[in-house]
Design a protein around this nucleic acid. Structure first.
Lengths: 210, 210
DNA sequence: GTCTATATCCAGATAGAC
DNA sequence: GTCTATCTGGATATAGAC
């Protein structure tokens, strides 16, 4: 989701688990490749993207990609990991906001901020998940965990507002975001996301008042 | 959307505009190809699907596909047309229901009925639109028109219920469906769609009562 | 560690026999 | 109209020079 993109790209933990910072690889080619993969996958889709596209975007020679990733699948996996880390970074930042309702509204505000990107390419994470679900590799399960993590965080906020139906409300909020991202993208209308974002903000206020 | 799938496959206007029923082509190969394309695109995604996959599913020899469609793009276009016709058929059927609120609830009920499919493959139309938006051909614009048609129909129902904000409510309803389809698919949990469907039904009742 | 050249594979598309 | 055999292009992946 665009939630993930709210994190400044510069510091987001693009370096995945197995990555050795490798003193040698000056220029951080692996990091550049992952960053490029996340962006190009978002703009073109995983299936349509060639390793050549990613190599070009990262300014790394094509053949060199294989030094860092054995196959395309591993680049996709690294991209999912990057989204996961971005989510962690974002929720950690939101957790510094004192009030649960304010935290949720900040989350929504971040989504709305990304509406131009959403109109062009959809939600960075939602479109990725949709594509992964059609693939053979098991990466859709990894992506599902990231989605679960988001739902859990949102649920926790509603629970702190005293709602016993926090889990359902979390699904409602995240689904609303994913759905409005899809419509915003399909109709190429960022205003749609702004309007729905305003609605969600009022909705959160209404829940917090109770 | 799965709305479209509620129409019985057997009669849905799979025969697109330019199709001559062609007395000669006994066995309706073109129709079989389009039907197969819609299904396989849904299950595997457009990009991952080869013409061979579609030919096999339609039980038509691969080379023969090119007699009916000059290129893969045209099969995709035919699939979009098929979704469009399914939507027309569905709304025509729903229009026979006397009350606008009942019509909307019947729409939702149809979505919920398709929840097992949604859990496996997502919304047939939503996942297609998402993929088309990443492609170069202009087919995403065609798909956008179908989405617009759905929104317009839903908006008309809310307008008949006397709501001046019918357009926003239509976006809210369709977005909710698309979002819950994505989550249902990602988490492989049809129950999620059932729960959200129940919520939407109550929501529609609440609007109708006012 | 880096990168070029190339092998391999496979999907889209075509030619032409039937 | 139908189908087989084949061409062609492009993407993944590798071998091996530097």
């Amino acid at each position: 989701m665009s939630i993930l993109s709210q994190v400044t790209d510069s510091d987001a933990g693009v370096t995945a688990e197995g990555a050795r910072p490798s003193r040698s690889g000056r220029g951080g080619k692996r990091e550049r490749l992952v960053r490029a993969a996340v962006q190009v996958f978002h703009e073109q889709g995983v299936e349509k993207t060639t390793l050549g596209d990613i190599a070009r975007a990262a300014e790394v020679p094509l053949g060199n990609v294989y030094y860092y990733f054995k196959a395309k699948d591993q680049l996709v996996e690294a991209a999912v990991d990057a989204h996961c880390e971005q989510l962690d970074t974002l929720t950690a930042r939101l957790d510094t906001v004192p009030d649960p309702a304010a935290r949720l509204k900040a989350l929504v505000a971040g989504w709305v901020d990304q509406r131009e990107t959403a109109a062009r390419f959809g939600c960075p994470f939602g479109t990725l998940v949709t594509e992964l679900d059609k693939r053979d590799d098991g990466l859709d399960r990894d992506a599902a965990k990231v989605m679960r993590a988001l739902l859990d965080w949102v649920e926790s906020q509603f629970a702190q507002l005293g709602r016993p139906d926090a889990a359902d409300l979390a699904v409602e909020l995240v689904a609303a975001y994913q759905g409005m991202s899809l419509l915003t993208n399909t109709l190429r209308d960022p205003g749609l996301m702004a309007a729905q974002g305003a609605r969600l903000t009022s909705w959160i206020d209404g829940i917090a008042e109770q």
